[in-house]
């Protein structure tokens, strides 16, 4: 499944807009600054494609807003930027420490067979991986639900693929152009 061309175009349009906003400020700065600006604008363009319907895009917008508030506001001016930036993400689920401890105690009390132990081990592995995925996907630690996390990951991967596709084609074209 490859990202559709309509997504590519839309992303490109958004990104162009972002670059236009960014350009005057980064014309004569260092490479790292320029890189940061380009990446930021690309990220915002990617996140704004979803118009705040997904969790990851909201988290990404919030994250970028802390870095460059002005740019985010400018780029999202079409779609109620205030609502998006300040949109509340789902609350982090915090379990009381005592409860956790008690449940662990209860778990320990049970005697386990070899089969159950293996299952528990596998479960632990999966849990760790899921935690890893949470760290990778923006806003992942706010998704308490496994199903939601996977869904968001799907969407995020699709968007990332679009982003990479567009950027790569532009880079390639640019390289080709400079060498010509």
């Amino acid at each position: 499944m490859q990202p559709t061309s309509s997504m590519n175009e839309e992303f490109l349009k958004k990104w162009q807009m972002g670059l236009q906003i960014v350009r005057p400020s980064i014309d004569n700065t260092s490479v790292s600054e320029r890189k940061k600006a380009i990446k930021l604008s690309a990220d915002i363009a990617m996140a704004s494609l979803r118009k705040g319907t997904t969790c990851w895009s909201r988290a990404l917008i919030q994250k970028t807003a802390t870095e460059d508030n002005f740019l985010v506001r400018q780029m999202l001016s079409g779609i109620k930027e205030e609502a998006l930036i300040n949109k509340r993400l789902p609350k982090k689920v915090v379990c009381h420490r005592k409860i956790v401890r008690r449940s662990k105690k209860i778990l320990r009390r049970k005697t386990k067979s070899a089969c159950e132990e293996a299952a528990a081990k596998a479960k632990k592995l999966v849990k760790r991986r899921t935690q890893g995925l949470r760290n990778v996907v923006p806003g992942g630690d706010l998704m308490s639900n496994d199903v939601l996390l996977l869904q968001e990951t799907l969407d995020y991967i699709m968007s990332l693929q679009t982003q990479v596709n567009v950027m790569r084609s532009i880079v390639d074209a640019a390289e080709a152009g400079t060498e010509q």
């Binding site: 490479v31 380009i38 990446k39 690309a42 990479v164 790569r168 880079v171």
Partner: peptide
């Protein structure tokens, strides 16, 4: 890619 773009 963004790094590359910034350098190009």
């Amino acid at each position: 890619l963004s790094m590359k773009l910034s350098v190009v």
